[in-house]
Structures are given as structure tokens and as C-alpha cells.
Amino acid sequence: MEHTQAYDGPTDPGEDGPTGAGSSRLVGSDRVLAVLKELARHPDGAGLDELTRVIGSPKPTVHRALGALRRAGLAGQDGRGRYLLGDEFLRMAFAHHEARPDHVRIRPVLDALADRFGETAHYAVLDGREVVYRAKVDPATGAARLTSTIGGRNPAHATAVGKLLLARQLGSQQEVEAWIGEARLERRTPRTRCTAADLCRELEATRERGYGVDDQENEPGVTCLALPVFLTSPTTPSGAVSVSALAYRTPLADLVNALDEIRALLGPLAGPRT
């Protein structure tokens, strides 16, 4: 599906011509950043015409933005002349990620969980209506192809980590309804809870049991169990750790039965028992 971009930032009546009060034309550094973000969506590279169409700016200005990114090492060209993220960008991103305090502290736990269950382990945080994956460890063999990627997002209402963290914020149906607002909750699978009443009941059950579950609600054939982790505060979770498993080989019931073992692997990061 072709990606389209909406932008509400500053505009400029400069080289791209006049801009009206309601214009969404990208200018200057905003355009450069938009091109950079678009390149990240094309691991096989993207042509100038394609980038121009998606960004919505004239070809010469998109080309100048690409030139600035190339000079900084943040973009490059392959043998076919297609543009892609540069090695310097990848070096900076990976170096930053590996050095983040939360990643350094949580990685051994994820390694242990992936090794114990032979499934994928995640660390994610809540960001509005979505969860953002800060770290991910696949098992040594038999890794499943999941929608989760480091830095990627999934809808909070459809994921174990999201529901676990929402359960601490939304204590009544009125609060759930206000959180949903006018937007519909995306139905990722036939099992996704997409009404305020259903989600409210699930959040209440999550609070009572102290862990979150996703029984093929975000991806068909994938189950998940999540527990809070306390990296920065003894009382407020910084995020949640989860084990995401293929349902046919690790049913949700198996993860629930191993709850005490998962807590033990989290160690002091699991926080107080409630």
C-alpha cells in the first residue's frame, strides 16, 4: 500500500512557491526529515519519482533533500540508482539503541525468556493508543515472523503489553470511552476487543490477575503473555515484557502455567507482587 504523509508543521513561501494559510507543503529541514523517514520504509530502495510522489514536493527539492542526506552519510544509492538509508544512519541508530539504559538492563531478561520458551520476547512501552517495541529477542531456532519490530508499533488494545499498561491508566468504562474517543478501535483479528465495554472488562480482568494476555487478538495464530517491569520506579512500570508464541506449539495456557517462572526470570525488575 502506498504511504501518504500528512504534515501540519511550518511552511515557507520560499523556493517551492507561495504557501497559503492552509498549506501542508513541506519545507527546509522538515522536507529532509520527511524524505529520511520515507526511505526507512523502503529497505530495497526507492526511486526519485516514487519519493517525489509520496512526499508531495517538487522533484528538484526532493533531490536536494536527498543530496543533503547523502552528504551526511544518512542516505545512499544502490547500483540501480535507487535511494536507501545510508550506513552512517544505521550505525548511529544501532549504536544508540545498544547503549540505551533500558535496553542494557532488559536484554539479559529477554535472552533468558527466548531461550527458555523458544519464542520471541519483547520489551515495549505505551505511547498513547499504541505500544512501541524498545527491544526484541528471537529464539535461536524456529523464530516466527511477527509484526513487531524494534521501534515499531502495534495498537495497544490488541496486545498483551498494551492492555496490561492501559489497565493501570483506565479504571472505568467512562475512562475507556474517553480514551477511545471518536476513533474506531482497529479489529486486527476476529478476536480483537473493539468496543469500550469489551475492552473495559478485559482491563478489569487484567488488573485482577496482574498480567496481560493476547489470545490471537493482534495476529492470528500468535498468543502472548505480558508482565510489568520497573526500570525507573519501584511503583510505576516503565513498560512491559512479553513472550509472544505460536499458539500451536506454545498455547496461552502454557505461558500462564509458567507465570511464576517468568516472574523469576524477571528478578527484581518484576517489582512488588500485587
Rank of each mutant, 00 (worst) to 15 (best):
residue 105 R to A: 10
residue 218 N to A: 11
residue 117 F to G: 01
residue 226 A to R: 11
residue 215 D to Y: 02
residue 4 T to R: 14
residue 160 A to F: 04
residue 76 G to P: 08
residue 134 R to S: 01
residue 101 P to K: 07
residue 120 T to N: 07
residue 112 A to R: 12
residue 222 V to Y: 08
residue 173 Q to L: 13
residue 80 R to A: 15
residue 91 R to H: 14
residue 160 A to Y: 05
residue 170 L to K: 07
residue 124 A to T: 09
residue 202 E to R: 14
residue 61 T to F: 04
residue 245 A to E: 08
residue 66 L to G: 07
residue 264 A to K: 12
residue 130 E to A: 05
residue 35 V to W: 06
residue 9 G to F: 09
residue 69 L to N: 00
residue 200 C to R: 08
residue 66 L to N: 09
residue 94 F to N: 10
residue 237 P to M: 11
residue 150 I to L: 09
residue 50 E to C: 04
residue 248 Y to P: 02
residue 63 H to Q: 08
residue 190 P to Q: 01
residue 158 A to Q: 10
residue 152 G to V: 12
residue 166 L to V: 01
residue 251 P to M: 04
residue 273 R to F: 06
residue 273 R to S: 14
residue 24 S to T: 15
residue 198 D to F: 00
residue 16 D to V: 07
residue 104 V to A: 12
residue 47 G to N: 07
residue 37 K to C: 00
residue 248 Y to G: 01
residue 167 A to T: 07
residue 271 G to C: 13
residue 211 Y to L: 06
residue 19 T to M: 09
residue 23 S to V: 11
residue 1 M to L: 13
residue 34 A to F: 10
residue 62 V to P: 11
residue 18 P to M: 07
residue 60 P to V: 03
residue 64 R to S: 10
residue 2 E to W: 05
residue 197 A to C: 00
residue 152 G to D: 11
residue 243 V to Q: 06
residue 196 A to W: 12
residue 161 V to G: 00
residue 33 L to I: 11
residue 82 R to K: 14
residue 111 D to I: 02
residue 151 G to T: 08
residue 105 R to V: 05
residue 42 H to C: 11
residue 170 L to F: 06
residue 68 A to Y: 07
residue 234 P to G: 13
residue 213 V to R: 09
residue 23 S to M: 10
residue 273 R to H: 12
residue 131 V to P: 02
residue 27 V to H: 13
residue 246 L to E: 14
residue 272 P to L: 13
residue 150 I to V: 15
residue 55 I to Y: 13
residue 215 D to A: 03
residue 143 A to Y: 04
residue 120 T to S: 01
residue 242 S to E: 10
residue 138 D to M: 03
residue 9 G to T: 11
residue 229 V to T: 14
residue 225 L to P: 01
residue 156 A to H: 00
residue 223 T to V: 15
residue 40 A to Q: 15
residue 24 S to M: 11
residue 263 R to W: 10
residue 183 A to N: 05
residue 223 T to L: 04
residue 261 E to T: 14
residue 107 R to D: 14
residue 182 E to K: 09
residue 137 V to D: 04
residue 68 A to G: 01
residue 268 P to H: 14
residue 172 S to W: 04
residue 110 L to H: 01
residue 41 R to L: 15
residue 15 E to A: 03
residue 6 A to Y: 10
residue 6 A to D: 14
residue 25 R to L: 14
residue 156 A to G: 08
residue 83 Y to G: 07
residue 16 D to P: 05
residue 52 T to H: 06
residue 241 V to S: 01
residue 167 A to V: 02
residue 60 P to Q: 08
residue 135 A to P: 00
residue 242 S to K: 08
residue 239 G to N: 13
residue 84 L to D: 09
residue 118 G to T: 01
residue 266 L to A: 08
residue 248 Y to N: 00
residue 11 T to N: 09
residue 160 A to D: 03
